[in-house]
């Protein structure tokens, strides 16, 4: 089985990394972080996948997918949300203080 899902999720992580390092705008950086987060979550789920198996709800028979990654991802997603919420509120704060979201201007102004 070719691991498209693995490669896909790692690609997401790499893209997220690229965005964080290359992009100027603060919101884009935060989105980059979020993309990395979703990439990892996708990776977790694809690790737990079993070929032609259904969701682990007992009332449906047949082989089940590995439930643990799903439980973990549930937590990871909520953590991702909280970090994004905080990051965005900090970005709002920075915007209020410096009037811009461009990183160079913020740092330039600060120096």
């Amino acid at each position: 089985m070719i691991q498209y899902y693995y490669l896909g999720s790692i690609a997401l992580i790499a893209i997220g990394m690229y965005i964080v390092i290359a992009k100027r705008n603060l919101i884009k950086i935060i989105l980059g972080l979020d993309i990395m987060d979703t990439g990892v979550n996708l990776l977790f789920i694809s690790i737990g996948y079993v070929k032609n198996a259904t969701a682990p709800i007992e009332n449906v028979p047949g082989p089940y997918v590995d439930p643990i990654p799903q439980a973990l991802v549930l937590t990871a997603i909520v953590i991702g949300v909280s970090v994004m919420a905080l990051a965005l509120s900090i970005a709002i704060g920075i915007y209020k203080k410096t009037g811009t979201l461009e990183l160079d201007e913020i740092l330039g102004v600060k120096k």
Partner: peptide
């Protein structure tokens, strides 16, 4: 002081 450099350091 630029977080992006820091991210690059991390990588």
């Amino acid at each position: 002081g630029n977080p992006q450099d820091y991210a690059a350091y991390l990588g």
